[in-house]
Amino acid sequence: MTERISGRVVTPTGIVQQGCVEINGDRITAVAEYPSIRDGHWIVPGFVDIHTHGGGGHTFTTGDADAARSAAGFHLAHGTTTLLASLVSSPYELMHEATAAFVPLVEEGVLAGIHYEGPYLSTVRCGAQNPDFLRDPSLDELSALITLGKGAVRMVTIAPERAGALDAIRLLTGQGVVAAVGHTDATYDQTRAAITAGATVGTHLFNGMRTPHHREPGPVYALLNAPGVVCELVADGIHLHDGTLNLAVSAAGPERSALITDAMAAAGMPDGEYELGGQAVLVADGVARLARDGAIAGSTLTMDAAFRRAVGAGVSIPDAVRMTSLTPARAVGLADRVGALVPGCRADLVVLDDDLNVVRVMQAGAWV
């Protein structure tokens, strides 16, 4: 049975002002112009969040499958129809347990995959990562986890200056896993070496990285300058000033800029005390910080809020749509299935009102 959703449809090639998306089953079958339609809501692709640790009071970081399902459901209500569960730095045993617990959720379609943010990160730039668990990359660990994941492991963030990092990046990319550069004190040249080895994502650009300097540009400029690298951006006004967000988007373009939430369990919840990777987190005025030193500890962001923030900062709606859907989908190898309102893609879409607030969400052809 065909369903038609009409309004201002945003496609990879622009806005169909008087448009209609035709759905049959769980697939988009057509996107067409219907002159009889007058305005209506915005129709955009379902958001794709490739970096989030939880939300709605639930976390991915402990490897609890029920909590993961609830966190994914929270973000789904905010328009995120495709989501990677991001772990934080932890012992191998927890990584193993979490991977085993999340594989069925990936097979079911609740999650699109797993992202290990660590533990192969810089101590100097660890941010809210638990320093007790940081270590050099292990090819044996990674090989075992990839095998255990049966395709569920999608991305691993690594600091390229750590011993064995380049070999780990080669191993990952050889197994079809995205290698990301993040939480790093690497120089420009070390970052370029990681890109040459196969790294294709910059984890929350600017945050958890050596600060750029005109005589030592460090990882930020290396990632922005690399044509094959997608740069993650946290558009919450806290991780990045709106001016910095605009600068990064101008440099990389919407084709290489991916909005992420980096959300933790406190997203959508009241201020108070929370936990991330075994560390106490205090949330005040919606800002999450480690209790021990005040470091930013993820965010309380949702993808619809990130979308609105980017548009409010001056990013055009078509570019913001690309940055919240097709670009992140392409970054983790999912662009053949999700991320755009085009025939053949999964019927994931978000209906937004004139203020860009979520009205309805569809995932795989079903309203949720």
Rank of each mutant, 00 (worst) to 15 (best):
D167L: 07
R309F: 13
I317E: 05
L341H: 08
G344P: 05
A284M: 06
V16G: 04
A163Y: 09
A180V: 07
P104D: 14
Q363N: 11
A252V: 06
L166P: 00
V48S: 07
A340W: 08
G63V: 09
A347I: 05
L142T: 12
A366K: 15
M264I: 14
L105E: 11
L76T: 03
A266S: 15
D262V: 13
A305F: 07
I114R: 01
H183Q: 08
T123C: 09
A72V: 08
L111W: 02
P119N: 09
A226N: 08
M209K: 02
C345S: 14
A186C: 11
S89R: 08
D336W: 02
L240R: 01
H241I: 02
G237W: 03
A295K: 10
H51W: 06
A30I: 09
R346E: 15
M303C: 13
A152D: 04
E141G: 11
R360L: 05
R8I: 11
A165D: 09
S89H: 08
L172Q: 12
D285H: 15
S86H: 01
H214D: 12
A199G: 05
L341S: 11
I23R: 00
V9S: 01
P35T: 13
G365F: 14
H41Q: 12
P254Q: 10
T191C: 08
S86R: 00
H78G: 00
A335Y: 03
R292F: 03
S316W: 11
P12T: 10
G237P: 04
I15A: 05
A265V: 06
D132A: 15
A193T: 05
T61N: 12
N357S: 12
A284F: 03
G127M: 04
I50T: 14
L84A: 09
V359Q: 12
D262W: 10
T244W: 03
G79M: 06
T184Y: 07
R308S: 12
S257V: 00
E216R: 09
A305M: 10
I5N: 00
P217W: 06
V124H: 13
A297C: 06
N130M: 12
V106I: 11
A152F: 05
D64G: 02
P91W: 03
W367A: 07
R135K: 15
L84T: 06
G113M: 05
